[in-house]
């Protein structure tokens, strides 16, 4: 493919738009990791719940976009809280070995996926065309900026800023930051740790749902959509596990790398480049850009 300036700009726009969706997913995943120190593979399941909830609220029950999206965020947030209470809390209370949590989360992910296959079927669906404005702005040299790109970028910025304000300006936000450092001692401060963990899962679920809805609009909706979370995991690792700014930076890097590869090399090379980036990062800087040293956190 020939190198042209307009292709470069176009792919940067596409990359940022994709990266912003990864960021929503990666930040929630990283937030859970920072508190419980395990990779929650059910995170993809939360995203799927968000996507389907939005789909059914819009198409079957005829609600408007605002109501459907809000409902989807709650559905996914609650799924995350219930998952934690039913599957993780009993394990947490018995052992401090986080490997069990990781395995349980893989199980939950498969359960959620298959619940959708069994109940609504595995076929590919799409959110209605008019869910978001579909306009396209033609910039110079054939560069197209679609309304959905703008919306996904703006929405990601809004949600991530809200999270930042919540963590830095509120009492529970401070408690979460303290718990990320030392959860037992946070309990000694009078923080109800059980509630705190539920709160963290709720927030992670909500962010996953926002990502899920954008993915369903951009691509399509199917029970295995959650597998895209792997990319968000990679982004979180590149940025530094457990670090929220790291998750955002890692996601944008990943989105850009994918789209630039697609634009200038070949679309088939996307994943190859992404996972090569991961391996290189692990080799030269295993803690990621913003991560604590691996000996502290694993």
């Amino acid at each position: 493919m020939a190198f042209t300036f307009s292709t470069l700009i176009q792919q940067i726009i596409n990359g940022l738009s994709l990266g912003s969706v990864y960021a929503l997913i990666a930040v929630g995943y990283s937030l859970v990791y920072s508190i419980l120190l395990f990779s929650n593979f059910a995170h993809g399941g939360f995203l799927v719940v968000g996507g389907y909830a939005c789909y059914f609220l819009l198409t079957q029950w005829g609600y408007g976009v605002a109501v459907s999206m809000t409902g989807a965020l709650f559905a996914s947030g609650l799924t995350a809280v219930i998952t934690e209470r039913l599957a993780y809390k009993p394990i947490r209370e018995r052992t401090s070995i986080t490997l069990y949590l990781l395995i349980a989360s893989m199980g939950v992910n498969i359960i959620i996926e298959n619940l959708f296959v069994v109940t609504v079927g595995g076929r590919i669906r799409a959110l209605p065309q008019n869910t978001f404005p579909t306009g396209v702005f033609n910039l110079f040299g054939g560069v197209a900026l679609s309304a959905s790109d703008i919306i996904s970028l703006v929405t990601a910025v809004i949600f991530l800023s809200l999270l930042q304000i919540f963590l830095n300006r509120t009492r529970w936000g401070l408690a979460i930051r303290a718990a990320a450092c030392d959860i037992r001692t946070a309990g000694l401060m009078g923080v109800n740790v059980t509630f705190l963990i539920s709160l963290v899962f709720f927030v992670a679920g909500v962010l996953a749902a926002v990502g899920g809805i954008f993915l369903s609009v951009r691509y399509s909706l199917y029970p295995q959509l959650g597998s895209i979370t792997t990319k968000a995991f990679v982004a979180a690792v590149i940025g530094g596990l457990g670090s929220l700014p790291g998750a955002v930076v890692g996601s944008l890097i990943l989105g850009l790398a994918e789209m630039l590869t697609a634009g200038f090399i070949s679309s088939q090379m996307r994943d190859l480049v992404v996972y090569s980036l991961l391996v290189i990062m692990l080799l030269i800087r295993p803690a990621g850009f913003f991560g604590k040293t691996i000996s502290e956190k694993i």
Binding site: L174, A175, R177, A178, C181, R184, T185, A186, L188, M189
Partner: peptide
């Protein structure tokens, strides 16, 4: 067991949780 990545002020604030 102070919260090392938080400031002194934030440590006191969380103490008053």
């Amino acid at each position: 067991r102070i919260f090392a990545p938080l400031t002194v002020e934030e440590n006191l604030k969380i103490g008053a949780f």
